[in-house]
Amino acid sequence: MIDTSIILQAVIDGAGVGLIYGLVGIGYCVIYNATGIVNFAQGVFVMLGGMLTYTLLTSLGLPMIVAVAIAIPLVGVVGVVIEWFIVKPMLVRNSPMFAIILATLAVQIMIERITIMTAGDQPRTFHEFTAGGPLRLGPVAVGYQLIWVLVCSVGLVLLLTLFFKYTRIGNAVRACAQNRDAAALLGIPVARMLAVSFALSAALGAIAGILITPSQYTAFNVGVPFGVSGFIAAIVGGFGSASGAFVGGIVLGVAQAVAIIIFGAGYKTVAALAVLLLVLLLFPSGLLGKRSEK
């Protein structure tokens, strides 16, 4: 019989990873809402966030805060480049949905290979933001990094909500989401708004990658698992709301953590796919979704 405290610990840690999935999931939604496409390269932003920060920390010896402040906008620029050179030309040509998905997937592989060539194929990690810990709460331990994850996630969701509600750019992106043609008629520079959504989404992914690296590791190939889990989190949460993505992420993170204890590490993605298939069977529009599926 497995000890209950082990299970409890797994639930706590799983929930922490789930918040990361939530962040990645929101990244998908931001792009999907603005462009109607699913960016399969989403996971690569997570990888780049971790890798770039690692490189800035070790090779340039920068302090954490500076490294992070450079890494996040850099990844945002990568997002804009993808939008500019691949997504936009395909949207203009009315390419079918799966051709666009495929192109983003190809970008993902290209970035992975470039990462191997420049930074090697070894896993990397860096120290937690705050030394010390963990906090002991009865039988379970809560690492300081987990608290960082929680605080940053909540903070980001608040910021995003404010951004979309109260800023001009945020409103413009939302207008594009509702109807691109109408938005263009209103004089909104639609193309620029698509770029904004990619930048935003890439930055979210980078932050997720930076937050998770101290408690796990980063390597050229962590993008795909995070991308898949993030997308599943977004679907489970109903593919639309930020809070939905977090709920979906937490459900997924916990399910994976428990599956790892029971079946072994190889079953992480099996658990994720099982959650996805079950949710699609039982709640076709997600746990918290209102919209009917597309």
């Binding site: 699913v38 399969f40 949905m97 799966f98 998905i101 795909v224 698992p225 898949v228 997308f231 599943i232 679907i235 190889g266 079953y267 992480k268 993605t269 099996v270 994720a272 796919l273 996805l276 298939l277 699609l280 076709p284 599926e293 597309k294």
Partner: peptide
């Protein structure tokens, strides 16, 4: 397959990852 588009795309993508990990 009842749902259109990305759901199948992602579910199959996950399947590829699963077989790789397993």
């Amino acid at each position: 397959l009842r749902l259109r588009g990305h759901y199948l795309a992602m579910a199959t993508f996950a399947l590829g990852l699963i077989t790789y990990e397993l």
